[in-house]
């Protein structure tokens, strides 16, 4: 992504990647990865959720990177060769629920570790 764009296609791709940094915490390596992915996959799509960017090809996830959404006005986004779509934040009417269990069952059939001596 470092090289100077020579075509509008390259320039737009670069601008899309830079625009992503308004919404997600991204390193330079992440941006290179995204730029290269979009370059190599004309049908590829980056799907941003609250804490992951998924690299999609034909609706299948092929890769993902952990990245926190820093724009509180959105819940996610979609970035493709053709457009950027921001998904506005939904303000819930309820308090929401926890992200779930803190105890490990680690049941691998006969080999479990059902340790609940330190539960919250």
């Amino acid at each position: 992504m470092n090289k100077e764009p020579e075509t509008y296609e390259e320039l737009i791709r670069k601008k899309r990647c830079v625009d992503l940094t308004q919404h997600y915490n991204l390193t330079k390596d992440d941006l290179d990865l995204i730029y290269n992915f979009l370059e190599k996959n004309p049908d590829g799509m980056i799907l941003g959720s609250t804490n992951v960017l998924s690299f999609m090809v034909k609706n299948q996830i092929v890769y993902s990177i952990v990245s926190r959404c820093i724009n509180s006005s959105i819940d996610g986004l979609t970035l493709s060769k053709n457009y950027l779509r921001l998904k506005p934040h939904y303000t819930p009417s309820s308090g929401g629920h926890s992200s779930g269990g803190s105890s490990s069952n680690n049941n691998n059939n006969n080999n479990n570790n059902n340790n609940n001596n330190n539960n919250r």
């Binding site: 779930g100 269990g101 490990s104 059902n114």
Partner: peptide, 13 residues
């Protein structure tokens, strides 16, 4: 209890 919500299998991630 393993099938209740407190366990690892019932985490978002």
């Amino acid at each position: 209890n393993e099938f209740g919500p407190e366990y690892c299998t019932n985490c978002d991630n």
